[in-house]
Simulated assay, not measured.
Amino acid sequence: MNVASGFASTPDGVRLYYEEAGHVVGQPRTPVIFVHEFGGDHRSWEPQMRYFARRHRVITYAARGYAPSDVPTDLDAYTQENAADDIAAVLDHLGIDRAHVVGLSMGGFATVHFGLRHAGRALSLTVAGAGYGAEKQYEDYFRGVSRDVADQFEKQGADVFAKTYSLGASRVQYQNKDPRGWQEFATQLGEHDAIGAANTMRGVQARRPSLYDLEDDLRVMSVPTLVVVGDEDDHCLQPGIFLKKTLPACGLSVFPKTGHTLNLEEPAAFNAQLAEFFAQVEAGAWTVRDPRALPSQIMKTS
């Protein structure tokens, strides 16, 4: 079984560091690519890389702005469109036509946009913990907080500001359940490039469109999709329900007593949910919603 790492290049010349496992020459395995959140990096998917490499070809990569990937200094290099297209660039480099795409938070938004921009290349989409800034009543507030977070990364440095950022309202659940795992997450966050973090916040997070503004496009995007949300990740709950009601072939899973860092906080449940989802998709059993199950069909009387 091959374990490898390297760099893929994007059309605008940014090098993206990736790692892969589970690739066996002469034995085709279904590819899965994992797209990390703002507070994480390629290392954040280790529980999934180890588990799914047993049966799949798995890839994780560091987004632009996250070393050892390139850290562009130009803010315009950081956009939601580039974040989605970077997934395709990694797949292109590895000669992969289609893959299951799994994203958390910022990576979940990139996964949604990958589905909109490259639907033919997605076997499925898993959108986990995605929703911050999507709720229209909090949109302006989120943009302002995102710019403030960017300022703090620059002023304090990642090693200092990580101590604050890692203790957000939807992170403490992880700390309470698994202090060792949370400490590893916080330590790795403190190792991020401060300029890359600030530019990601300003260029991607603060400028991305609300999911609700994408409704017309989402309604015709029929890629099999799984949305996963923690029930204490408050600002992702309603956007998760919105995606469930809007995407034609979407399922929604809510993890109890769980915050934002889903895949690390509840790795066994997350892996089991993904494995079942992949199996159904590959069997052709994850289809668009049966029209008999639409909300308008409350109760049959004849």
Rank of each mutant, 00 (worst) to 15 (best):
T126Q: 10
D159A: 14
R64L: 08
L264G: 12
A122G: 04
D233P: 04
I59S: 06
R50M: 14
G203S: 09
E265V: 00
G190Y: 02
S302A: 12
T126F: 09
H23L: 14
R147N: 05
R50T: 15
G6K: 04
N271E: 04
A88Q: 10
E215L: 11
M299T: 06
E37N: 09
L218W: 02
A269D: 05
E191R: 15
A275M: 08
T60P: 05
E191T: 08
T79C: 01
G6A: 07
G129K: 03
M299E: 09
Q48Y: 10
R50Y: 10
P248F: 06
L226G: 06
G26N: 03
F142H: 14
E232D: 12
R143T: 01
F34L: 15
H118W: 04
L75N: 02
V229T: 13
D151W: 09
F185Y: 15
W45L: 03
D217M: 13
W286K: 02
R43G: 07
A130N: 14
Q80I: 15
S5Q: 14
S302Y: 10
V90N: 01
A169G: 04
R117A: 13
D97V: 10
W182L: 09
V223S: 09
M299Q: 12
Y141D: 08
Y66I: 11
Q27R: 15
R29H: 03
S253G: 00
K300S: 11
L211K: 07
T246A: 02
I195R: 10
I195V: 14
L91G: 03
W182R: 07
E37F: 03
L91E: 01
E276G: 11
W182Q: 05
G168W: 08
W45S: 02
R121E: 00
F38M: 13
R50W: 11
G203D: 06
L237M: 11
G103W: 01
A158L: 07
C236E: 05
A88R: 15
H118L: 05
R289K: 13
W45R: 00
A63R: 15
K245R: 14
K163L: 12
G259T: 05
R143L: 00
V35K: 03
L252I: 05
E276A: 13
R43I: 05
G284S: 05
M49I: 08
D234G: 10
Q48P: 13
Y212K: 10
S105R: 12
R171V: 00
G26P: 04
A194C: 06
F185E: 03
S302N: 12
W182K: 07
L218P: 01
A279F: 03
F153R: 02
Q152V: 00
P291T: 00
D193R: 05
A150H: 00
A197D: 06
Q297M: 11
L247V: 07
A62C: 15
